[in-house]
Design a protein around this nucleic acid. Structure first.
Lengths: 191, 191
DNA sequence: TGGGTCATGTAACCTGTTACATGATTAG
DNA sequence: CTAATCATGTAACAGGTTACATGACCCA
């Protein structure tokens, strides 16, 4: 997965491992993260696969660097990946897993929890995103048409955020009415 | 992660590795999947951790089985996990990663793609969920109060599904207007 | 003098996936 | 007879995380 992300970035222009890390950290953090440890390892195997090539650049006053470029084979791989299997949506959500088992904790605690969750933000806030956007245009995307896709991922984040807050509210409501029923001792079954 | 899911299930009652697998397959599949290969491995390390204990049961007409029970230490671990760090939301979405780089493909292709995506379902459909629900209540959760949390995870799925469809529509709209602008040659910049 | 940025990586570990392997019973 | 269910696992691999290690330059 990360391999193809790196491929996508190199397709916008040559980069060092370090630069790739900064792009992930500053601009792609709303859907992926990557440490240098992994990046350098992936670059190695990508080179073995013939997807990228490397050239050593000596620098004065700075450490030398290895600059990576995408090859024709790499570009083909990128397009293949983009077109491949329309997404089984991995269905693996630690957050829902926890929610599922929350019955072990007292209701009051869970109400407080969902109240707090509804406050937190899941995706990075729009201010940060805007700055990252500018940066992204400048260094990676000369073609402004491609920025549309970037905006769409941001929009997804916004919509998710909204939905998530609504859901937290529903959780609180649901649990409060459960609490109410327990107090009243009126246990009508509602399945 | 899976370890704690297994712990949560064993907390409802003793189970074999095989039974754990069926619960994941039939009832928890909307937020987690697990193969037996992983389950048996996790059970081993969980026993080493002292979270669970094992007893061998001989059966007539069926293969023998190993039944696992949660220990006090395991229950403590489960509660600790439930209460731990309020969720950094791992931010790792292969779907958004792909969307981000779709600029490499022709707009028409992407429009068709998002149209198709809006049709597919991401979470298992409600019919299946309802059946799995009944099953879940019967075999795992005696306490109907705990079913609330199960319903909340399903509700999350429903809301996500709705949001996702809306987003796909927005993608199509956005790309169609891009297409329009390109045809007209009227390139007003809109950042 | 100390912390941030640029720049490189290695090693061990954890978690999840895929493929393989076995074998009895039971229902259609 | 054959497919599904019950029941157990191993091995190899892939991908991501954490911790560690080095070192120069620049700015406050």
């Amino acid at each position: 997965m990360l391999k193809h992300g790196i491929l996508g970035l190199l397709n916008y222009g040559d980069k060092t491992g370090y630069e790739i890390m900064t792009v992930f950290r500053d601009s792609l953090n709303h859907f992926w993260t990557a440490q240098t440890s992994q990046i350098y390892r992936e670059l190695q195997t990508m080179e073995k696969n013939g997807w990228i090539s490397q050239r050593h650049v000596e620098q004065a006053g700075k450490p030398d660097k290895n600059v990576f470029s995408i090859t024709e084979a790499g570009r083909a791989e990128l397009l293949g990946w983009l077109r491949a299997d329309n997404l089984p949506k991995s269905a693996r959500d630690p957050f829902l897993m926890k929610t599922f088992f929350r019955g072990e904790l007292p209701v009051e605690e869970n109400i407080a929890y969902f109240r707090a969750c509804g406050q937190e933000r899941v995706f990075p806030d729009d201010g940060k995103q805007a700055t990252a956007a500018a940066e992204m245009y400048r260094q990676a995307i000369q073609n402004p048409e491609k920025a549309v896709y970037w905006k769409l991922t941001i929009e997804f984040g916004r919509m998710f955020e909204r939905m998530y807050r609504q859901w937290c509210q529903i959780c609180v409501q649901e649990l409060e009415s459960l609490q109410q029923n327990q107090k009243n001792g009126t246990e009508e079954k509602e399945v």
